[in-house]
């Protein structure tokens, strides 16, 4: 039982980790928690669904199409809404993302309706392999693997690529980035594209477990946000670990304590972290000497 809970916790946790990563990447650059992250992923998942169903494309093409769409959507939000904000403060930026979230939610309801749909996924949740006393579905494995691969790519990107380092530089000191010739506006666009893309991967991986409707990402977004807070909001490694930890804690709580209150765990964690360690568990932020 414990092993089973642990494994499915990891599987859910990797989805939370992806959403948390997407949020942290934007938070570090634009200094705003992007509450439309979930709906952006949801719409992108619907795009994959439409490409699969109506246009009859193969899964790979639909998947890639949805990712491209997600990237464009991210750039669009940043360029059309956030960049226009005059004298932006945190609150107004949060309101912009919330407004965009509602627009997307409404749009999905109008375009695809509230029906619960099924995203035909090439890997099934019902093919399982036995792992001692626990079972692991192919979908679980795919989720875990894809997440790990994506994280590895991100790690390499931020560590070794010129654009990745420039992105970190822009996050740390935009003025200094500009005087070194980094086009910070372009970096901002790339950041939003990247983040939206990661969110879309989470959405597509989540769709076969949940059902595809406009509420797809409502709950996972809050869990992802909780993971990001747990990890410290500014650390990518922290966000990923936060996601896994939350997934496991939540599942263990559901298994041993109360299945009804399983969803509350995430909010408990937000409250506890903010009370006792507001900088998060893994933030190793350099403290500026005054």
């Amino acid at each position: 039982m414990f092993l089973q809970l642990l494994i499915s916790g990891l599987s859910f946790g990797s989805l939370y980790a992806l959403i948390a990563l997407a949020m942290v990447i934007i938070y570090k650059t634009s200094e705003v928690p992007n509450f439309s992250q979930g709906e952006m992923a949801m719409i992108s998942t619907f795009v994959a669904y439409t490409l699969l169903g109506a246009s009859g494309q193969s899964f790979t093409i639909s998947f890639i199409g949805a990712l491209i769409f997600a990237a464009i959507l991210g750039v669009f939000l940043e360029f059309v809404f956030l960049r226009r904000a005059k004298d932006p403060n945190i609150l107004s930026l949060i309101l912009i993302t919330l407004g965009f979230e509602m627009i997307l939610y409404g749009f999905a309801g109008w375009k695809w309706g509230a029906d619960q749909r099924d995203l035909p996924f090439p890997v099934s949740d019902f093919d399982i392999i036995n792992l001692g006393p626990a079972v692991l579905s192919y979908l679980n494995i795919a989720t875990l693997l894809i997440t790990l691969i994506l994280m590895f790519i991100l790690f390499v990107f931020f560590k070794y690529s010129k654009v990745g380092i420039a992105m970190k530089a822009t996050q740390q000191n935009a003025m200094a980035a500009r005087i070194n010739g980094i086009r910070t506006n372009r970096i901002l666009s790339i950041t939003w594209a990247l983040s939206s893309l990661i969110g879309a991967v989470a959405g597509i991986l989540l769709a076969p477990i949940a059902t595809l409707d406009p509420n797809l990402m409502l709950d996972p977004l809050l869990k992802g946000f909780a993971s990001a807070v747990l990890g410290g909001m500014t650390s990518l490694v922290g966000a990923a670990l936060g996601g896994y930890i939350l997934g496991i804690i939540e599942n263990l709580f559901g298994g041993y304590v109360s299945i009804e209150f399983k969803s509350v765990v995430a909010f408990m964690i937000i409250v506890l972290v903010l009370c006792f360690k507001p900088s998060g568990l893994f933030a190793r932020h350099y403290v500026r000497r005054v």
């Binding site: 380092i165 740390q172 000191n173 003025m175 070194n180």
Partner: peptide, 21 residues
């Protein structure tokens, strides 16, 4: 710039490489 304005959470080497961006 006045007050250095280095990229505090990048390594020294990465800072220099950003100079050659």
């Amino acid at each position: 710039p006045e007050g250095r304005e280095v990229f505090e959470e990048l390594s020294v080497r990465e800072n220099l490489l950003m100079g050659a961006y």
